[in-house]
């Protein structure tokens, strides 16, 4: 156990369970990408000719908002938390934005959407970081508060219509060169920042540190409450961006726009190899996880499986994958 154990790997590079475990533990992207490709092949076999460039564009366009929401979960889960308020916050940001376009213009509307998300995020972060409320409870409670407030706001704004501004429509639902979803113009730089930030920024290091061992982080001089407030604020802002994209994709906004994406966002992060116990994971895996879930949904739709079956499968996959990760990472 002391040595890294390269010996066994050299002798029997592919067949040992230990090797597989090590790959799953250290390089989850490899098996995940394999799964992704397998799903594409299955889809092609089930419905020959379905896999085209424009089809890929559709898949990516659907996967991008989910990947961003799953990014919120990834960041929160790295610290050992979870953010179940992303659905409510994303819906709120999109709805506030869409209702203000007519009166205030698109720029103010977008800023207002980000602003309300920011406020919600700060409140969540203070509750978790300063008042030490469990993230699950805090974010559940915040989603109740946000949902209620948005419903009240909806009645107050009953006269102004819901308008999705053109740039958001362009980003959310249009493509360039016939197949390239425009959301990638936002998503690629955004994910580059997140992936790089997690690896190469001091703050990214602290997210891992807090989740791996909060006591050690504190003893090393990290003020954990600061990390958590910033974390849940960032998470809310990311959720708002995802909300805008979904509004652009659906060409409408409502107070319940994103609610159904909360569990898939957790699922994508878990499948992508981020541990809910904290300290382990990353955004690259999460993106693949979001793609896998989107493909799975498409596959089930292609097979005429009912929506319910998708729910059952999602739930089962989360348990199985989480159990697998727990097994391979549980041993030193």
């Amino acid at each position: 156990m002391t040595s890294v154990g390269t010996g066994t790997a050299e002798r029997n590079p592919w067949l040992t369970r230990a090797t597989w475990r090590r790959i799953l533990r250290d390089q989850p992207l490899i098996p995940l990408s394999g799964l992704l490709i397998a799903l594409v092949i299955v889809l092609q076999l089930v419905q020959p000719g379905i896999v085209t460039a424009s089809w890929a564009g559709v898949i990516v366009r659907q996967a991008v908002p989910l990947a961003i929401l799953a990014g919120c979960q990834t960041l929160a889960m790295l610290t050992g938390g979870i953010d179940l308020s992303v659905g409510a916050v994303a819906s709120m940001a999109a709805f506030v934005m869409a209702t203000l376009v007519n009166g205030q213009g698109p720029v103010v509307a977008v800023l207002a959407g980000l602003g309300v998300a920011l406020a919600a995020g700060v409140v969540t972060g203070v509750g978790i970081g300063v008042f030490k409320v469990h993230p699950l409870i805090m974010t559940l409670g915040m989603s109740l508060v946000v949902l209620g407030l948005v419903a009240v706001y909806q009645l107050a704004m009953v006269l102004s219509g819901v308008v999705i501004p053109d740039p958001i429509l362009w980003l959310g639902s249009e493509t360039s060169f016939g197949f390239l979803p425009n959301s990638l113009f936002l998503f690629v730089p955004l994910s580059a920042v997140i992936v790089l930030g997690l690896r190469r920024s001091g703050y990214g290091r602290l997210l891992f540190a807090v989740g791996d061992n909060a006591i050690a982080a504190r003893l090393a001089g990290v003020r954990i409450w600061q990390v958590l407030i910033v974390l849940y604020t960032l998470s809310a802002l990311l959720a708002a961006i995802a909300g805008f994209l979904i509004a652009g994709l659906n060409k409408t906004a409502s107070p319940a726009l994103v609610e159904s994406a909360v569990l898939p966002s957790v699922a994508a992060a878990v499948i992508g190899g981020t541990s809910i116990l904290g300290g382990r994971g990353g955004f690259a895996g999460t993106i693949v996880g979001a793609l896998i879930l989107t493909l799975l949904t498409t596959l089930l739709t292609t097979l005429n499986m009912p929506e319910a079956m998708r729910q059952v499968l999602f739930g089962a996959i989360i348990v199985v994958v989480a159990a697998a990760y727990t097994r391979v990472t549980g041993e030193a």
Binding site: I82, L136, L263, V266, A267, V270, I276, A308, M309, R310, Q311, V312, L313, F314, G315, A316, I318, V319, A322
Partner: peptide
């Protein structure tokens, strides 16, 4: 939390 969150989808499904 993870198990029961996931199972909530299974049972509802």
């Amino acid at each position: 939390i993870v198990v029961t969150l996931a199972m909530s989808f299974v049972w509802a499904g």
